[in-house]
């Protein structure tokens, strides 16, 4: 049996965190609890984030959205600033797990789990989101790439918590897309996924492309070469095929039960071709 602590504010949370260095933070528990099953149970102390108001809610700042780390996927989807304002993230949230899990699981939990298959990560990468960490020494900000070090590893300091995700409001990205390849229609871990944002100029040519792949390497994979291959071209099949070749060269997938590395590599490229269907609509 674990002792469960439910701090009522950030200061109390940080104090507890300092007192109980071995404690686990728990937001929705949808990663923590199943994972501890295999490890013979939860740690002795568990600190709940549910009652810490500073970690909840979404606020609009200058040019950016500040999303509380403990905001649930369902809450984000229900908020038009995410649902309509950040389609690339909303698409990922909509296919994350299942309605029940989306009611429990949080965006902060998804980030801190740092799974190569975390569904919010590729969208947050292309949105160039930053994370806000709070510790007793103060608050610091990191880019997602700085924060996530590898599978299950983050730059979260011992006394720190992830407070919020800061998402710059994307301007002019008329084409936003997220697609996950899973082995079933829901509750499926990504075999490979793609988040894409394209800003098109007045003649429909790509002025800026941001592409990120999930489950295609130890962390989210960006591919500047693929992005560059699209610049100045319309997102046609032939342009996307060229970008796909770069993508296949850039990804570092693994073989596992779900799929082979070769399949992941091929499909990482293929997924780009979907953008042609979207832009022709």
């Amino acid at each position: 049996m674990s002792r469960v602590h439910a701090p009522r504010g950030l200061a109390e949370l940080l104090a507890l965190r300092a007192d109980l260095p071995g404690a686990a933070l728990m937001a929705g528990g949808t990663d923590l609890v199943p994972r501890s099953r295999a490890r013979g149970g939860l740690p002795e102390d568990v600190i709940l984030l549910q009652d810490v108001p500073e970690l909840h809610g979404i606020t609009s700042g200058k040019g950016l959205l500040r999303i509380g780390a403990a905001a649930t996927h369902a809450a984000l989807l229900a908020d038009p600033r995410v649902g309509r304002g950040l389609p690339v993230l909303a698409r990922a949230l909509a296919c994350l797990a299942s309605p029940a899990i989306r009611n429990m699981g949080s965006i902060g939990g998804n980030i801190c789990t740092a799974s190569p298959a975390g569904d919010t990560l590729p969208p947050l990468h292309v949105l160039e989101a930053r994370v806000e960490l709070a510790g007793r020494e103060g608050v610091r900000e990191l880019s997602l790439a700085e924060f996530i070090l590898g599978p299950g590893r983050t730059a979260l300091g011992p006394g720190e918590v992830l407070c919020a995700v800061l998402v710059p409001r994307p301007e002019g990205f008329s084409l936003q897309h997220f697609e996950k390849v899973g082995l079933r229609g829901a509750m499926a871990i990504a075999v490979v996924s793609l988040a894409a944002m394209l800003r098109l100029d007045g003649r429909g040519r790509v002025a800026e492309a941001r592409l990120a792949w999930g489950s295609a390497g130890p962390a989210v994979v960006r591919c500047p070469a693929a992005e560059a291959a699209l610049l100045g071209r319309r997102p046609t099949l032939s342009a996307l095929r060229a970008a796909a070749r770069h993508a296949r060269a850039a990804v570092r997938p693994i073989d596992d039960l779900r799929a082979s590395a070769a399949y992941r590599r091929e499909v990482a490229g293929n997924l780009l071709l979907r953008l042609a269907d979207l832009s022709s609509r």
């Binding site: 199943p34 299942s98 082995l183 079933r184 229609g185 829901a186 509750m187 871990i189 039960l257």
Partner: peptide
């Protein structure tokens, strides 16, 4: 694949 996150039965969405 001894658990239901790796042994995949169809869901209602399928």
């Amino acid at each position: 694949n001894p658990d239901l996150s790796t042994y995949l039965v169809p869901t209602a969405a399928d």
